[in-house]
């Protein structure tokens, strides 16, 4: 009898670990997936925001000169440009210089011997008040023989649209994933409550508080959630470093600045652990809610 009971309990225990173990694994995995997606999108948004900021803070516009003008004629435009409101200074750059800059930017032989005529003479204009950039740009365009005027701000606008799309997509995804995580977490912990309905009813009859009864299940959720949060953080870190390295070795490295991971490490860790623990604790609480109505 004794031995039978022992083997029975052992068998049941092993079985539980496997069924329950699989569900535990599933709930931790889904939390990790949720957090990783959340992290990727937030970090992407943060990086875009930083870039937008940087662009917007550059108070420079480039005015391209009509290509029919000779270098001297082009140079002569400087006075007219300086006469425009809000222009602090203007630096003339010849098409040859522009090409040199371009080539050195790319540090490569690909662009060697390009015909300098594809570049235009230009003025790099510094503004005194960045908030008037739009008006100044328009006025500069009115100057004779100025073909076009571009500002980094124009690129910034495109980035803002992109950023907004990323934000919306990430919010929707995160909400869906959190709901799924909660569902799986609740069902995982429900497994631990099976066969304990009677026990819980007895606890209530002898005067146990709901908090006391909930505690083991909430702890189970907390551990699973914290585990998911921790693993997701490590994966996020690795992924971020990997992507940073990839981006930095491409051509884009000159244009794109990436926030180093250490500056966001702590908030990311806190949010990941927080969300993981929250999902776990809510899951644990929901799992036994029905058992407490005695």
């Amino acid at each position: 009898m004794r031995l039978n009971r022992f083997f029975y309990l052992l068998g049941q225990g092993v079985k539980n670990i496997f069924t329950h173990g699989f569900m535990s694994f599933a709930s931790v995995t889904i939390i990790i997936a949720c957090l990783l997606i959340m992290g990727c999108f937030s970090l992407l948004t943060m990086n875009i925001d930083t870039m937008i900021d940087e662009m917007q803070n550059q108070n420079k516009v480039i005015a391209y000169v009509d290509e029919t003008l000779s270098e001297d004629e082009a140079r002569a435009l400087e006075d007219k440009i300086l006469a425009v409101d809000n222009v602090e200074s203007a630096e003339f750059v010849t098409r040859e210089e522009a090409m040199d800059n371009f080539e050195s930017d790319y540090d490569d032989n690909v662009f060697e011997n390009i015909d300098p005529t594809v570049f235009r003479h230009r003025f790099v204009i510094t503004l005194s008040d960045i908030s008037l950039m739009k008006q100044t740009q328009a006025e500069l365009r009115k100057v004779d023989s100025i073909a076009s005027v571009t500002a980094h701000l124009d690129y910034a606008k495109k980035f803002v649209t992109f950023r907004n799309i990323v934000s919306v997509v990430s919010v929707v995804l995160v909400v869906i994933l959190i709901v799924v995580s909660l569902f799986i977490m609740t069902n995982t912990i429900k497994l631990a409550t099976f066969g304990r309905k009677e026990e819980i009813a007895i606890m209530k009859m002898v005067g146990a508080t709901n908090a006391f009864i909930r505690l083991p299940f909430v702890i189970e959720g907390l551990v699973l959630g914290a585990l998911g949060g921790g693993i997701a953080y490590l994966l996020m870190w690795g992924l971020y470093e990997l992507l940073t390295e990839r981006v930095m070795t491409t051509m884009a490295s000159g244009i794109i600045t990436i926030i180093p991971f250490y500056t966001v490490a702590l908030p990311v860790l806190c949010v990941f652990l927080g969300v993981g623990i929250l999902v776990g604790v809510i899951g644990g609480t929901t799992a036994i809610r029905n058992y407490l109505k005695v």
């Binding site: 009677e198 026990e199 007895i202 209530k204 009859m205 002898v206 005067g207 146990a208 508080t209």
Partner: peptide, 19 residues
């Protein structure tokens, strides 16, 4: 407050309700 009340009572059930 039910737990507080129940701690003042000892109930023996017909079917024992042992674990």
């Amino acid at each position: 407050r039910l737990p507080k009340l129940r701690r003042t009572l000892g109930v023996i059930f017909q079917d024992f309700r042992l674990i």
